[in-house]
């Protein structure tokens, strides 16, 4: 039932049909032990459907997958003992307190009697919720609810953690805290399978990213390699002190510069190469006796990579579930 191997997840030809339509269409990928693997795609791409199949919540229509060496069709109950899942919705029990919720989940995960409360309190402390341990789940803020939902998935010290859109609906502070926590968990050895439609989040957290569009993986690589695949016109951004009013016109006459645009206090210059652009900027600065307050070569972002590699409209990507 269990196969040994260095892959936390191996997926081959995994397919899921709903009403004859392929929500996930014959996808193949592997997630290595200790990796942060991102599943990126717009809403409806099939991310959550894939997680549901890998965690045993739904059965694949076709294909195979092993999670922690267990076949998802025959050994998922055993695999569940070793992985944790943070669903998109924080779905603990409103009527139970933070501590009671964790103790209940500990009971389901066979944590021995004397360790249940100890482990729950340990996690409450890790997530800064010790002061709220006797508060009902319904009385917690959205960020606290999210944190407690993640804590519930960590009770049994899983080797693999599935995170489905973990930062959706969180404010900036809580989203940042959560990202740091994901990093920390990974440093402690956990493999992370993360779905998100936030491009920067995937770029920041993931070792490798699979981009899923309409149920198919269109590309799978490291964030840097994905960005390098982008056809990109070399560009630099600069800010002079003071910034001359005619800077855009005058810089445009410099050798090697194709076009210029103003971005807030900076100007962005596009040209043949970054060295030529840099040379032009420094020449102009010394001619006009200007101080360079900021200069940076502009590299393609994950957004650029996503748009070019998938052809998906970025706005469609950024719309949250429910059309927000």
């Amino acid at each position: 039932m269990k196969k040994d191997g260095a892959n936390a997840i191996s997926v081959s030809g995994l397919t899921k049909y709903y009403d004859g339509l392929a929500a996930v269409d014959s996808i193949d990928f592997e997630v290595k032990e200790g990796e942060v693997f991102g599943f990126l795609g717009p809403n409806g791409a099939g991310k959550t459907t894939t997680i549901r199949m890998l965690t045993g919540l739904s059965q694949p229509s076709d294909g195979t997958a092993q999670v922690l060496g267990y076949d998802i069709r025959t050994g998922i109950t055993f695999a569940k003992r070793e992985f944790g899942v943070v669903p998109e919705v924080s779905n603990l029990y409103d009527e139970l307190t933070a501590l009671e919720n964790l103790v209940f989940m500990a009971q389901l995960y066979r944590i021995p009697g004397d360790q249940k409360i100890k482990r729950a309190e340990e996690l409450l402390s890790t997530f800064g919720l010790s002061q709220r341990k006797d508060s009902r789940f319904s009385a917690l803020s959205r960020g606290m609810k999210r944190a407690l939902t993640i804590a519930a998935a960590l009770l049994h010290k899983p080797r693999l953690l599935f995170l489905d859109e973990p930062t959706v609906g969180l404010d900036v502070v809580n989203a940042r805290l959560l990202r740091s926590l994901i990093r920390e968990l990974n440093h402690q050895g956990a493999t992370i399978f993360l779905t998100t439609h936030y491009l920067e989040e995937a770029d920041f957290l993931c070792d490798r990213i699979a981009i899923l569009v309409r149920g198919s993986i269109v590309v799978l690589d490291t964030p840097d390699n994905l960005k390098q695949m982008v056809k990109w016109e070399p560009a630099c951004e600069v800010r002079f002190i003071p910034m001359p009013e005619k800077a855009i016109i005058e810089l445009g006459r410099q050798k090697g510069i194709h076009r210029i645009e103003k971005l807030g206090d900076n100007v962005r210059l596009y040209g043949e190469s970054v060295p030529l652009l840099t040379e032009a900027i420094f020449n102009y600065g010394s001619q006009k006796e200007l101080e360079i307050a900021f200069i940076n070569s502009v590299r393609p972002t994950m957004e650029d990579a996503f748009v070019q590699l998938t052809g998906v409209n970025l706005e469609a990507m950024l719309v949250e579930k429910g059309g927000r």
Binding site: T55, G56, L57, T77, F78, K80, R81, V85, P87, V89, N91, L92, Y93, D94, M105, L108, Y109, R110, A152
Partner: peptide, 12 residues
């Protein structure tokens, strides 16, 4: 509320 899913994710 989706909490039944949570139970189904447990190793039971």
């Amino acid at each position: 509320l989706g909490s039944l899913e949570r139970l189904l994710l447990a190793p039971i």
